[in-house]
Structure formats: structure tokens, C-alpha cells
């Protein structure tokens, strides 16, 4: 099935600056596999070491979060649009942690 994958700006450096990639796939998992085969540097940004979609990455099929569909097994239909939506999260220090703001590397 020909489908379109929308690439968010921070990841376009790994897709030759393309904001959308068209490819053929029968499921969401197949589409992401094809995408990351085509653009190998994208893989580590979308998948963790176990090959699962990273928790900071949301994938939407048209207007639905694939978490509430059949995740990677969700079937695709012609002209579906898959959107990779980066999780935008953050926050200040936890109360009770008085080590001050941190802008450098941690020992993580």
C-alpha cells in the first residue's frame, strides 16, 4: 500500500531533509522498518535497543495514536498518513532536590 510518513523537523537531518517519505507497506511496523532501512540513521531515534518504538516517540495513523489501535500490527490502507510525533516533555527540578539547575552532563 502506498502510504506517506510525515517526518518531524528534528529528524529531517536523517531523511535527506525530506519532510515526508512515501513508501509501500502493509502495516505500521512494516512502514517504520522500510523507513529505517532507507534512512538507517533514523533507527536509533525511533527504536530502543530491544527494537521497540521509543517511549518518547508517538506514531499516529491519520488522527489515531497507534497505541490505541494495534500498535505496530495496525494494518495500513492506500493513502494513509503516518505521523511521527516527538513527545515534548520537561520540567524543573524535583522539590527537595536542591542541587541547583543543571545544564551539563549528568552521570547518567
Amino acid at each position: 500500500m502506498p502510504v506517506k510518513v510525515i517526518i518531524p523537523t528534528p529528524l529531517r537531518q536523517y531523511t535527506a531533509k525530506k519532510d515526508a517519505v512515501e513508501l509501500d507497506a502493509k502495516t505500521v511496523g512494516e512502514a517504520l522498518a522500510t523507513l529505517t532501512t532507507q534512512y538507517a540513521d533514523l533507527r536509533r531515534h525511533l527504536f530502543n535497543e530491544e527494537g521497540k518504538i521509543r517511549s518518547f516517540v508517538n506514531v499516529y495513523l491519520n488522527d489515531e495514536d497507534i497505541r490505541y489501535l494495534q500498535r505496530e500490527q495496525t494494518p495500513l490502507h492506500e493513502n494513509d498518513v503516518l505521523s511521527i510525533v516527538p513527545s515534548i516533555a520537561g520540567g524543573s527540578l524535583l522539590r527537595g532536590n536542591c542541587s541547583g539547575p543543571e545544564t551539563g552532563p549528568t552521570d547518567r
Binding site: P10, Q13, F56, G90, S92, L93, P101, E102, T103, R108
Partner: peptide, 16 residues
């Protein structure tokens, strides 16, 4: 808190 990123901010940030 100051207008400086926390380590949590950094861990969750995206480039660009």
C-alpha cells in the same frame, strides 16, 4: 525555579 534547563528537560529534549 530558574529559566535554565533541568536534567529532565535535557533527557526529554529533541535536537534543533
Amino acid at each position: 525555579h530558574p529559566a535554565q534547563p533541568s536534567s529532565y528537560d535535557r533527557e526529554h529534549a529533541w535536537p534543533w
